[in-house]
């Protein structure tokens, strides 16, 4: 099954390697990984998608926590969450074919962000299947896709589940300074 993990990691050199190396060691292929800033200074947020057996989720999460640079790991597994992916798709388009592509983009709520005499670039965000749907339609309509760049999934739980709330929900006690920082922020 598909597993999605959201991890808060220290923003330091080599942290991505450590995470990637763990999956390599477990012989699990990473389908996508996105990394960027989070709401906390010096802490990056990572959304990681991989294919592994249903039981593997526990071991992956437990193993991620064993890495010193990992602060928080959430296994999204079926929880209500918003998932988005950004895709840039460059399609060969002439004066004659352009408008048909515009129409398709319209239907998919995608935007045209670049246009030349021979090609155009579509930008769209959405769930994976929506991106795949647009690609499929473009292909089925015999448009020539020149390039695709997909960001991989970003996921966030729905509702008032900030990382601090998640942390507070955990049964084990936290370091006092963290708890204080959380209290100040409330």
């Amino acid at each position: 099954m598909l597993h999605t993990f959201v991890a808060y990691v220290e923003d330091k050199p080599g942290v991505l390697t450590r995470v990637a190396s763990l999956f390599r060691r477990l012989n699990i292929n990473i389908i996508s990984v996105t990394v960027g800033c989070s709401e906390r200074d010096g802490i990056s947020r990572m959304t990681l998608v991989c294919e592994a057996s249903a039981e593997a989720g526990h071991r992956i999460r437990a193993s991620l926590y064993k890495l010193d640079n990992i602060i928080e790991v959430d296994d999204i597994a079926g929880a209500p969450a918003v998932t988005r992916e950004l895709a840039l798709i460059k399609v060969a388009a002439t004066k004659q074919t352009r408008s048909a592509i515009f129409e398709l983009a319209e239907v998919f709520r995608a935007r045209i962000v670049d246009l030349t005499a021979e090609s155009l670039m579509i930008e769209m965000t959405g769930v994976e299947s929506k991106v795949e749907g647009l690609v499929q339609v473009l292909e089925d309509s015999d448009f020539q896709i020149l390039e695709i760049s997909r960001s991989g999934k970003m996921t966030m739980r729905r509702g008032h589940h900030t990382s601090r709330v998640l942390k507070a929900m955990r049964p084990t006690a936290e370091e006092p300074e963290e708890a204080e920082a959380a209290a100040e922020a409330e």
């Binding site: 999460r61 437990a62 926590y65 064993k66 955990r170 049964p171 084990t172 370091e175 300074e177």
Partner: peptide
Amino acid sequence: PKPYRPHPMLK
């Protein structure tokens, strides 16, 4: 170092 943080999944 900061106080040792036990593995968060210990229970």
